[in-house]
Structures are given as structure tokens and as C-alpha cells.
């Protein structure tokens, strides 16, 4: 990778989760950082009814010139799942040998709570079998240890950044410019903690 200039690099990242988990803020930080590093960036998200606890997705694409803002099936370089069963729901979007960053965290949908559907067993284990390039950890627990479980989105962002080798971006400044000032210190620590999780597991090509 070192022979490619940073602004000439290209990639596509699909962030998925449950409405209210903070996928949009993470994508916002990601897009701004990539733009400042000289890339063309497009990001696409869905608002409205699906925000009400439904399954949500945000697409981020970067490169010298990006056309379509959305990622097609089999084309995501990295899938970041904020909830584990959502990783399975969106797995068809990941390209072969793509990276999966998955939050080992369970949010049972209403269909499961009322007994109409079953939350599957051993989701992480089965994802591991299907995806060699997987990083699975409880980002909520990492964030809670730092002071607030709500920073799990930035923990996951840190892991993603390390996995994709996007460390050349000045993420510290980008975070400073995007998150509420009161939460900056916490988010920065969350980001660094996530980055540590992302290291050492990024052999997927």
C-alpha cells in the first residue's frame, strides 16, 4: 500500500446497526477526515421511519473520484456492524476477502421480544467461519470502561481506521471539529482504544 499516495487510495465502507446507535456520527467523522486528506468522498444515509429502532445503514465511499454514493452487494471493502445480527443481515454487501468489524453486542428486535422470532445462537462464531478478516469485540464495554457506553460508535470507528490503514488522516482534529466539546476527551480515548483493537488483525486484502 505504501507506494500509493493517500489521496489516490479508494475504498468503500458500509456501517450498519440499529436506529439510534450513532452510525451517522461515526460516518460523519469518517467522511470529513477522508475529505480533508484529499479524497473525493460520498456518504449516503437513510432518515425517516427506519430510524425508529429499525435496521439502518450508512454508506461511505472515497477515492480520487467517486460516482455512486451507495455500495452494491459484494462491493464493500469493510463492513462495520454496530450490532452482531446486523452483520449477518448485511453480509452480502461485503466483497470476498473484505474486512468485517463487528460489535459483539446484541439488541433483540421486538419480533424476538414478543416471541414471534428467535435471536440466532453463536452469531459471532458463525461470522468467524464465513469471514476470515473479522474483528469482533464488545465496543460498548470498551466505551463503558472509558466512561460512557454511548461512545461505542467512536470505538468502532477507531478499529475501522486501523483495519483500513487510514491512520494518515488527522483524526484528532476531525474529532475535535465534529463531536460536542464536552465529549471530546472521552471520544478521543474511545477512538484510541478502538484503534488498538483494530491492530494486528488486518491481513485481509
Amino acid at each position: 500500500m505504501s507506494d500509493v499516495k493517500n489521496q489516490d487510495r479508494a475504498g468503500s465502507i458500509l456501517l450498519v446497526g440499529v436506529g439510534g446507535q450513532g452510525t451517522i456520527l461515526a460516518s460523519k467523522v469518517l467522511s470529513l477526515g477522508l475529505m480533508r486528506a484529499g479524497s473525493d468522498v460520498k456518504m449516503s444515509e437513510i432518515h425517516g421511519m427506519s430510524q425508529r429502532g429499525g435496521s439502518v445503514s450508512t454508506h461511505v465511499k472515497f477515492g480520487p473520484a467517486v460516482f455512486s454514493p451507495i455500495i452494491s452487494e459484494g462491493e464493500a471493502d469493510t463492513l462495520v456492524a454496530f450490532e452482531k445480527v446486523e452483520a449477518a443481515r448485511w453480509l452480502s454487501y461485503l466483497r470476498p476477502r473484505g474486512m468485517l468489524v463487528v460489535n459483539d453486542y446484541e439488541i433483540r428486535p421486538l419480533s424476538v421480544l414478543t416471541g414471534a422470532a428467535i435471536y440466532p445462537d453463536d452469531v459471532i462464531g458463525r461470522l468467524r467461519e464465513a469471514v476470515p478478516g473479522i474483528i469482533a469485540f464488545d465496543a460498548g464495554a470498551v466505551a463503558s470502561e472509558l466512561g460512557s457506553g454511548r461512545a461505542q460508535n467512536i470505538v468502532l470507528l477507531g478499529a475501522l481506521v486501523r483495519c483500513m490503514g487510514l491512520d494518515y488522516v488527522d483524526w484528532e482534529t476531525v474529532l475535535k471539529d465534529t463531536v460536542p466539546p464536552k465529549t471530546y476527551e472521552l471520544n478521543l480515548r474511545a477512538f484510541e482504544a478502538g484503534r488498538a483493537w483494530g491492530s494486528g488483525s488486518c491481513q485481509a486484502g
Partner: peptide
Amino acid sequence: KAEQGPPSGVTPPPRPPV
């Protein structure tokens, strides 16, 4: 059609908005 990785075999329960 773009190639995809192998499926996980996990059947996600429906998660409509609530």
C-alpha cells in the same frame, strides 16, 4: 454480478421500525 463472500448461515430476525 459482483462476487460475494460465503454466507454466514445466520438468519437475522426481522427488525422493522418500532
